[in-house]
Write a protein that binds this DNA or RNA. Structure first.
Length: 287
DNA sequence: CCTTGTGTTCTCCG
DNA sequence: CCGGAGAACACAAG
């Protein structure tokens, strides 16, 4: 479940590895995940170079050396981008490249990008939710406009954050997950943010006090920054571009801890369903 | 049947 | 009674 910190980790990795490299070939084994069409996708990308990789929310945006064309990559729930080149040292443990990806491609490899000097980027996805899409700058503009304010970005001010919560009857949890309002937060970080702020996730957003909103706003940035610092959370499938797990798992306070003892008090972490999502919280630490 | 990110569809309430 | 908010569903696979 890559969320903002996981996608940002991948973005930084890719920026260090594939910028300026020319795509020499593209192989697609799952045509349905590339857009607009298989033919257009291949024809456009072969011989193109990637100039930079940006991100909005959980969406990666690659700028190409082609006029008015951008490549969007969304990993959805189980997508992975794994890069390998001549300098890659394949071994286990904390080494550069995870052993379990040494034999890519495998049956979950959906798209392969080839670069000069035997460099390869694999798009792996257990399911077929993730996608790769070519868009024009006009289309990109429309897509970007739909995203809400994002933690650690300039627009994430207390004022803007308060305005997002104002008059919203929906639960805090649902609001945090709504990408049109706040970009980048998914199920894991939403639960962690609510816990860190000491606020129950089912509370109607409009009922939060000024103090709570201030605390929540601050905690959103702190948790997301900490997630990035530790290269994301690997709960199920997330890995970085070298196939390595994220380091934030050990900092999780509530996510995945249903029926276990709270890390801050003697109470038991509860797991319920809010907005159709598994939600973990401490009824004692969170009010 | 569970897991979840997001676009779409449906329902219901103010 | 209408519009919009919010819930529910669809997708996918293990």
């Amino acid at each position: 479940m890559p969320e903002l910190p996981e996608v940002e980790t991948i973005r930084r990795d890719l920026n260090a590895k594939i910028i300026g490299q020319k795509i020499t070939a593209v192989e697609i084994s799952a045509p349905r995940i590339v857009r607009p069409t298989l033919k257009k996708f291949k024809n456009t990308l072969i011989d193109a170079s990637i100039l930079s990789i940006d991100r909005i929310g959980k969406l990666l945006i690659a700028t190409l050396d082609k006029k008015d064309i951008f490549l969007l990559i969304h990993l959805k729930m189980t997508g992975q981008l794994i890069y390998r080149d001549r300098n890659t040292i394949i071994a286990g443990g904390h080494s550069l490249f995870a052993q379990k990806f040494a034999h890519l491609p495998d049956r979950h490899t959906r798209v392969i990008f080839y670069f000069p000097n035997d460099a390869v980027l694999f798009f792996n996805d257990l399911r077929l939710f993730g996608y790769l899409q070519l868009v024009t700058s006009e289309e990109l503009k429309i897509i970007k406009e739909k995203y809400g304010i994002e933690p650690l970005q300039k627009n994430f001010t207390l004022e803007n954050f308060s305005a997002v919560l104002k008059n919203k009857t929906t639960s805090l949890k649902a609001l945090l997950l709504n990408q049109n309002l706040i970009a980048g937060i998914g199920n894991i970080y939403a639960d962690e943010i609510c816990f860190a702020a000491g606020i129950r996730p089912m509370r109607p957003a409009k009922n939060l006090t000024g103090t709570e909103i201030k605390r929540l706003h601050s905690v959103c940035e702190k948790i997301i920054a900490k997630g990035i610092k530790h290269r994301g959370t690997t709960f199920n499938t997330f890995v970085d571009t070298a196939g390595q797990s994220g380091g934030f798992l050990r900092f999780l306070q509530v996510y995945g801890r249903g029926k276990l003892k709270c890390k801050k008090c003697p109470a038991t972490i509860l797991k319920i369903k809010i907005a159709g999502r598994g939600t973990h919280y401490c009824y004692r630490c969170q009010k």
